[in-house]
Amino acid sequence: MRTPTDLMADIGEVLLDEDRIQARIRELGAQISADYAGRRITLVSVLKGSLPFMADLMRSITLPLRIDLMEVSSYGGATTESSGLVRILKDLSTSIEGEEVLICEDIIDTGLTLNYLIRYLKGKRPTSLRICTLLDKPARRLVEIPVDYTGFTIPDQFVVGYGLDYDELYRNLRFVGVLKPEVYAAPE
């Protein structure tokens, strides 16, 4: 595996800088606070990519809220080879039955993972189940999913940073950037 010595050097373009991300998250937080006024919500973060987003979003929401974390295996990952089926690697730690649930995603592209998660979480009988994503990449959507809150609609580029990774790296960047193609085309 290639380990970059300078993460910034692998970024071809900063798509969303930190200020822009934080400003939009504050807007989303205000909107969510207004929409759910008088109610308690449960934010569900889909690990690992949405962790920074949820950490900032929850602090922009003025309502009482709970948080929980989920992680599902990704196609092609080390955990997929045995069964060939998606697996819940980390389930919710508390019941969401009767709760107002807001799923926090880092990015939606094909919608396959989220489609699965929605089906899974609906089985836990929440009062409501809504979607909030920082990034939406509709160009490659396979499963049409109604997204209730969208931070940014982005073009069809491979992005990293602010939780998004390539080969588990770049998550700690404070912005969203486009990875240089030569990074993922580099020989092993």
């Binding site: 955990t79 069964s83 089926l85 998606v86 697996r87 819940i88 690697l89 980390k90 389930d91 919710l92 730690s93 508390t94 019941s95 699965y116 089906r119 899974y120 089985g123 836990k124």
Partner: peptide, 14 residues
Amino acid sequence: MTADASTKAPELDV
């Protein structure tokens, strides 16, 4: 509900 690592996906009918 408790954390359940590596829970097999439900509702699968492939």
